[in-house]
Design a protein around this nucleic acid. Structure first.
Lengths: 246, 246
DNA sequence: TAGATTGTTAATCGATTAACAATC
DNA sequence: TAGATTGTTAATCGATTAACAATC
C-alpha cells in the first residue's frame, strides 16, 4: 500500500507544452491514424495522468502498473489495457518511466497545448469556477466570464472582468475561446447554449440542471450536483434495508 | 449576482414526501426484495425524474416513453428498460401518468424522505454549493458548512453559519447529517474524509481532485471539473484531426 | 539466467438496442 | 375492434477481468 496521500496538492503544474520529442519506440501513431480510445478509457486516462503528476511532484521516477493502478483506484489489468490504447510506453520487467508516460498520455488526450475557456454565468458557481486554480494548472486558461445582470457586468472576478452576455459572440471571437462552461439557470441554458454553438464553440461543459439539445458534432458534457446526491441517496437507502440474502 | 438564481429552482419543487399510496398494480416490491438497479440505470432515472418534474410543472399529465426518452436524451428502448427495474407503472397503448411515475421513481431512488447534507470547505465552491437552490428543492437539506480557517468560521453563508472543522464530529452528530460534500483542497481531503467516515457518514460526494481511499460500505462519488474539460479536450482534438476514413 | 512486469488475448460480464407479443 | 404503446425477450455491442506469453 503506497501511502502517497499527503501533499497531493501542488501536483499538476508539470504539464508543459514544450514540443519535445513525444515519439519513442511506442506504437503511438503520431499525426497518423489516431485510433479511437473507448470513452471509459479516456475518463480513466485523466485519472492516471493526475496520479502520475503527483508522483512526479514527489520525485518518483518509475512506477509499475500495479502501484499506479492502486493509486488510481482501478485494477492493474484495466490500467494496462487503457494504456495500450495510447501506445506501449512501458518496459517489461521494469515498469513505466513516470514523466515519459505522463507526457504521452497528455499528448493522446490533446493536452499539449492550452485550451481557452469562457464561463457563462457569474453567479456563485461561475465565480467559484473562475477562481478555481485547478483549471489553469492543467492547461485550461479562463479567458472570459459573462453575466446577463447589469449589476454584475464589469465586476472583477479573479483577474477577469465580467462581460455582458449580450456581447457573447464578439467576446468569444476576440478571446479565441474554444471551450465554454455553462454555469447558469436551467431556464436560460438552452438559449445560451444555442448561441455558443452558433458562435462556433463545439466543446461545452454544462452545470445547468437541464437536458440540453445540441447538434451533431458538438461535444456536451454535464455535471449535475443534485443528480450525484440522488445517486448517493439510492445507495444509502439500499444499505439501510436489511438485505436478505437467500 | 443572484439574479439568475430563482429560475434555477421552479422546476423541481414537486418532490413531495407525503406517505401516500405508492403501491399500485406495479411490480414494485414494497419493503420486500428490492432488487438491485444497474448503476447506469440509476443515473438515468434521476434524469427521467427531472424531466417528469418539468412536465408536471408545465401541467402535462401523461407522457409516452417515446417523448420522455426524447426529453431525456436517450432511446425509448433504454428508457422502458430502465423503468422496468423500478416496476411497471405505465399503461399499454396509453403511456405513463406523469405524477404517478415520478413518485415511484422517487421512491425507488430513496427520495421520499429528506437527506441532511453537510458541506466541508467554505471556499468559493463550498459557498456556491451551500447557496445552490437545486439541493433544497430536490430533498437535500444543507444542515452545516465547515471550514478550517478561523477567519471564515462564524461567517454567514446562506442561512448557515460556518462551523469550525475541529468540531466536525460533534456538529455532524448534532445535525444528524447523513451525507457529506467535500469541497476542499486535495491536500487535506483524505484526512477529512477519514474523519467523516469515522463519524459514521457513509455517503460522500467529493469535489477534491484526488483519488480518495474509503473502506468498503462507504459510497464515494467524485466530481472533477478539470477532468471533464480534459475529456472535452480529447474529443475536440480528435475532431480537428482530418479523420481519414478508408 | 531468474525474477519481474508488460502488452495482449480470450473469456466473462454488463449495458444497449431492436423487435414484438401483450394488452390497454 | 383497430391503433397505440408498454414491458420483456433475445441479439448485439462494449467494457472488464484473468491469465499468460513476450521480454526486459
Amino acid at each position: 500500500m503506497e501511502s502517497q496521500r499527503e501533499a497531493m496538492e501542488g501536483i499538476v503544474s508539470s504539464l508543459d507544452s514544450s514540443p519535445r520529442a513525444v515519439e519513442g519506440q511506442g506504437a503511438a501513431p503520431t499525426g497518423e491514424i489516431a485510433k479511437q480510445i473507448p470513452p471509459a478509457a479516456v475518463a480513466r486516462l485523466t485519472i492516471y495522468l493526475r496520479a502520475l503528476n503527483t508522483l512526479l511532484a514527489d520525485g518518483v521516477e518509475r512506477v509499475s502498473s500495479e502501484s499506479l493502478a492502486e493509486a488510481s483506484g482501478v485494477s492493474s489489468s484495466t490500467l494496462r489495457k487503457d494504456l495500450s490504447y495510447v501506445g506501449s510506453y512501458g518496459t517489461r520487467g521494469v515498469g513505466y518511466e513516470v514523466q515519459y508516460l505522463s507526457r504521452h498520455i497528455s499528448a493522446a488526450l490533446g493536452l499539449t497545448h492550452d485550451w481557452k475557456v469562457a464561463i457563462v454565468g457569474a453567479g456563485n458557481l461561475g465565480k467559484a469556477l473562475a477562481r478555481y486554480g485547478g483549471f489553469e494548472s492543467r492547461g485550461f486558461d479562463v479567458v472570459a466570464i459573462f453575466d446577463a445582470d447589469q449589476l454584475v457586468v464589469g465586476n472583477e472576478v479573479g483577474w477577469l472582468r465580467v462581460s455582458d452576455v449580450a456581447d457573447l459572440e464578439a467576446v468569444l471571437g476576440r478571446t479565441g475561446a474554444n471551450m465554454v462552461v455553462l454555469a447558469l439557470p436551467a431556464a436560460v441554458a438552452q438559449a445560451i447554449c444555442d448561441r455558443v454553438v452558433a458562435a462556433g464553440v463545439h466543446s461545452i461543459l454544462s452545470f445547468a440542471p437541464v437536458m440540453l439539445q445540441v447538434p451533431d458534432g458538438v461535444n456536451l458534457r454535464k455535471v449535475d450536483m443534485a443528480t450525484e446526491l440522488q445517486i448517493l441517496a439510492y445507495h444509502a437507502q439500499r444499505a439501510q434495508t436489511p438485505d436478505q440474502t437467500a
